[in-house]
Measured scan of single mutants.
Amino acid sequence: PPDDERKKAEKAARSGNEEKAREILERLGYSEDEARELAKRLR
């Protein structure tokens, strides 16, 4: 489910793995720019 994926992205971002967070968010349908912004904010 998307919620689980989003949680994974948050966890990745918090542990400093912004790249992985961005990949997950892009898979969820965010654009590259949106995903980058979100990954930064989740950190």
Rank of each mutant, 00 (worst) to 15 (best):
P1S: 15
P1L: 14
P2R: 13
D3W: 13
D3I: 12
D3K: 09
D4T: 13
D4C: 15
D4E: 14
E5F: 09
E5P: 10
E5Y: 08
E5L: 15
E5W: 13
R6I: 15
R6Q: 09
K7W: 08
K7E: 12
K8Y: 07
K8I: 10
E10W: 02
E10N: 06
K11H: 15
K11V: 13
K11A: 15
K11E: 15
K11C: 14
A12N: 04
A12I: 09
A12S: 07
A13F: 03
A13E: 03
A13V: 05
A13T: 05
S15G: 10
G16V: 04
G16P: 02
N17R: 07
N17S: 07
E18H: 06
E18R: 03
E18P: 06
E19T: 12
E19Y: 03
E19L: 11
K20S: 09
K20Y: 13
A21S: 05
A21F: 08
A21Y: 11
R22G: 01
E23A: 11
E23F: 00
E23S: 08
I24M: 07
I24R: 02
I24K: 01
I24Y: 05
L25T: 00
L25E: 01
L25K: 00
L25N: 01
E26R: 12
E26Q: 15
E26V: 15
L28S: 01
L28A: 07
L28E: 02
G29N: 01
G29E: 01
G29K: 00
Y30W: 06
Y30A: 05
Y30P: 01
Y30S: 01
Y30R: 02
Y30H: 04
Y30Q: 00
S31W: 01
S31N: 10
E32I: 03
E32T: 06
E32D: 06
E32P: 14
D33Y: 06
D33Q: 11
D33N: 09
D33F: 06
A35E: 01
A35L: 05
A35Y: 03
A35I: 07
R36E: 10
R36N: 08
R36I: 10
E37D: 13
L38V: 07
L38M: 11
A39S: 03
A39R: 00
A39W: 00
A39N: 01
A39H: 02
K40Y: 01
K40P: 07
R41T: 06
R41K: 13
L42D: 03
L42K: 02
R43W: 11
R43D: 07
R43L: 14
R43A: 15
